[in-house]
């Protein structure tokens, strides 16, 4: 199978997952438009996510062994915090895809080839958000969101995007190490977000 075919298959799978998540959200009557305040809150988190990953975008991702762990902690913290502050379907897509597109506009320029990568991570997280329902505020949901985002993100990156877009190839042990470190970092980030969420929610509600 050529990489182009594999890439197109993943685009189809991502579209199917996204549609499933939003169909479930509509069926459970949790979908709806965002208010300006919710969008502003998510925008700040998107900015913070981008600031956290900036050093890795200029090439430090090549630092052997550590980048996956360190990158995942702030990214997952911001993602889980965003879902705690705006706990509704669509927020994960806005955070993950928003960060990706903002990163493209201030970094490498708009590149639609990468959009399925952002959408794939967002689709999996959306599905977890919709299925979690009222349990979204638990530590288990935070860990699940963080670990799933990291697992899908690193797998998609090293198995599809990197060979397809950059024609870079990596051995299985390297991919496994990155995936493992990414998931561990994401779990640490999820725990940090779980602990910080009540403090930040109280503080932002006080100022709102």
């Amino acid at each position: 199978m050529s990489l182009t075919t594999l890439y197109l298959y993943t685009v189809g799978a991502t579209a199917a997952l996204t549609l499933t998540a939003f169909a479930l959200a509509v069926r459970r009557r949790t979908a709806g438009p965002f208010t300006a305040a919710q969008l502003a809150t998510l925008s700040v988190l998107v900015c913070l996510m981008h600031v956290s990953v900036m050093p890795w975008r200029i090439g430090l991702a090549k630092a052997p062994g550590v980048d996956a762990l360190i990158f995942s902690i702030p990214f997952t913290t911001c993602l889980v915090l965003g879902l705690r502050l705006v706990p509704r379907p669509g927020a994960a897509t806005l955070l993950i895809v928003g960060q990706g597109i903002l990163g493209q506009f201030v970094g490498s320029g708009p590149n639609p080839v990468w959009w399925p990568y952002f959408l794939a991570m967002a689709a999996v997280v959306e599905l977890i958000v919709v299925l979690s329902g009222r349990r979204l505020g638990t530590l288990a949901a935070a860990l699940g969101i963080g670990a799933a985002r990291a697992a899908v993100g690193y797998s998609y990156m090293y198995l599809v995007m990197s060979p397809f877009v950059w024609k870079h190839f990596y051995p299985a042990w390297y991919f496994g190490a990155k995936l493992g470190l990414g998931v561990v970092g994401a779990c640490i980030g999820a725990v940090v977000a779980h602990r910080l969420a009540p403090v930040i929610r109280d503080a932002t509600e006080a100022v709102a």
Partner: peptide
């Protein structure tokens, strides 16, 4: 990092909400 997040987020969200309402 943990000590940085709370003031950064609270101040940022407050400013962003004000800007959003004004817009």
């Amino acid at each position: 990092y943990r000590l940085l997040l709370t003031p950064l987020l609270v101040a940022g969200i407050r400013r962003a909400r004000q800007t959003a309402l004004a817009a």
